[in-house]
Design a protein around this nucleic acid. Sequence first.
DNA 1: AGTGAAAGGTTGCTGGC
DNA 2: GCCAGCAACCTTTCACT
Lengths: 151, 151
Amino acid sequence: MLDATDLRILRALQDLPEASIEEVGRAAGISHTPCWRRIRRMQEEGVIRGRAYQFDPKAIGLGITVITMTKLDRHDEAALGAFEREAGKLAEIVECYLVTGAYDYALKIVTRDMEAFETFLKTRLSNLPHVGDMHSTVVMRRVKDDGRLPI
Amino acid sequence: MLDATDLRILRALQDLPEASIEEVGRAAGISHTPCWRRIRRMQEEGVIRGRAYQFDPKAIGLGITVITMTKLDRHDEAALGAFEREAGKLAEIVECYLVTGAYDYALKIVTRDMEAFETFLKTRLSNLPHVGDMHSTVVMRRVKDDGRLPI
DNA sequence: AGTGAAAGGTTGCTGGC
DNA sequence: GCCAGCAACCTTTCACT
């Protein structure tokens, strides 16, 4: 599916996010036309999902990040689907993973401050379908979070 | 620092990541010149950190994501600093947060497969400075992970 | 602080080789 | 894979509200 040149392109896109296609091609050892064609192909294949702007949460007034592990009281497909559908609608839940272990879902939640988180927990999160036990861990500091994959 | 127009611009950038500045301005209710000026200002202020390409981990051969909670055996500044410095060098650790609770750090680790994760855990992670107890939770499915903030 | 217009350079994209 | 060329966009500035 992906050859060595494709991987070099992906690495260049990750390392030089603002670079032009010509620069990416140079970093990958090809000229800009085949580079552009490969990028488009990888976009169509879904390898490259898109580009996203990265904001500083604190600068936007979002000071609190919490990792909340969540259990459901049922584990049939309907319960999981209902939970995931409703969780997907809540903007404060920025990430949601189905996980192994004692809990069912790992959620990353971002809010303005602790008061907003408490309100969110009590009025929104605990009212999601089939939610049972929850355990929250507050993030004190973001040590590393650049969205870079080990390609 | 940020007024209502700035927030509308950030929302537009998040919702339409491929849009031109003119389109973003239209979505925010202003024309392209002040829109461009505001974007540049927010970049200089660090509100907008940059743009990052998003890849499908599975398509690149990265099939395993694990959330690993980690304790240190010491909690002075030197120990935290040493751990964070070395953890930052490991590409497989894509996110690292200092957290409250029973554990000290929450790590998100991405590897090719379970075997690669086991090797990483035994030869890299457990050799980081001052690492004590660890607890790993395997991600079965990515329900939501779009990097969008609740602006 | 906003609008509208315009110039120049760069980029994205399509062809032919 | 490369080269040439075109249309579109971004950047920047200017005059004006």
